[in-house]
C-alpha cells in the first residue's frame, strides 16, 4: 500500500475512518480521489452530466464496500476498478455490442501524429466522448486501463474478436476525427 498522506492523515487512517463511517474521513477521501475518478468517468460517459452520475454512483460503492479492501495493491487502483466496473454496468444493458466484419482495419490513412500532439487534453476527451458506447468502452479499457481483449470480452460479455474489431474501429474513428479537427484548425488559422 502506498503511504500517501492527505491533510495530515495517512491513507490507512483515512480508510479506517471510512470503514467506521466517519463523514470527515469520507470527505477527505473524496477530495483526494475525485479529480482522478471524475476524469475516468468523463472518458466512459457520453457527456458531463452522465459523468457526474457515474462519479456519485462510484463513490457510494466505494464507501459501502471499503471494508472489503484487503490492502493488497494500490488503494487508488482498487477504487479505479470500482469506477470502471460501475461505468461498464451503467451502459451494458443499454447497448448490445456486435462484431464488425472489418476487424482488420488498422489506422486512418491520413492520420498524422503531429495532429494528436497539437490537441489539448480536453479536446482529446471530447473526441473520445463522441465515440459510440461500444467503441469508447473498448478503447478506454484497452488503451487507458490496460486490459487485454480477453479481459474486455469477459467484462463486456463479448468475444475477443469483437473487442479487437471494436478497438480497431474506435481507433480509426478517433484518428479520423483528430485529422479533420486539425485541418479545420489549420483553415481557421490561415483565414
Amino acid at each position: 500500500m502506498s503511504a500517501i498522506t492527505f491533510q495530515g492523515q495517512s491513507e490507512q487512517h483515512i480508510i479506517e475512518g471510512c470503514i467506521l463511517g466517519d463523514r470527515k474521513f469520507q470527505s477527505i477521501l473524496y477530495n483526494l480521489l475525485s479529480p482522478k475518478m471524475f476524469a475516468v468517468c468523463l472518458r466512459y460517459a457520453a457527456d458531463y452530466n452522465s459523468a457526474q452520475d457515474l462519479l456519485q454512483e462510484g463513490f457510494i460503492k466505494v464507501f459501502k464496500n471499503i471494508e472489503k479492501f484487503r490492502g493488497e495493491g494500490s488503494f487508488e487502483g482498487w477504487v479505479r476498478r470500482i469506477f470502471v466496473n460501475t461505468a461498464i454496468e451503467h451502459y451494458r444493458k443499454q447497448v448490445n455490442l456486435y462484431a464488425l466484419h472489418d476487424s482488420d482495419v488498422k489506422s486512418y490513412e491520413y492520420y498524422e501524429q503531429n495532429a494528436l500532439e497539437s490537441l489539448k487534453h480536453e479536446d482529446i476527451l471530447k473526441l473520445i466522448q463522441q465515440l459510440s458506447y461500444g467503441y469508447r468502452t473498448v478503447f478506454n479499457l484497452y488503451v487507458i486501463e490496460g486490459y487485454s481483449h480477453k479481459e474486455i470480452g469477459e467484462k463486456l460479455g463479448i468475444s475477443e474478436g469483437t473487442s479487437k474489431s471494436q478497438l480497431a474501429r474506435a481507433r480509426y474513428l478517433l484518428q479520423k476525427m483528430i485529422t479533420e479537427n486539425n485541418e479545420i484548425a489549420k483553415h481557421s488559422n490561415n483565414s
Binding site: Q26, S27, S34, H121, I124, Y142, V143, I144
Partner: peptide, 25 residues
C-alpha cells in the same frame, strides 16, 4: 497513438463540479 492518449488521460485530472460531495453525502 495509444501511448500518447493514455498518458494524456492519466496525467490530467478534472475537478468535479462544486456540490458533488453534498450529493454523495
Amino acid at each position: 497513438f495509444d501511448r500518447y492518449i493514455e498518458q494524456s488521460m492519466n496525467e490530467n485530472f478534472v475537478e468535479p463540479p462544486f456540490g458533488m460531495w453534498n450529493r454523495i453525502s
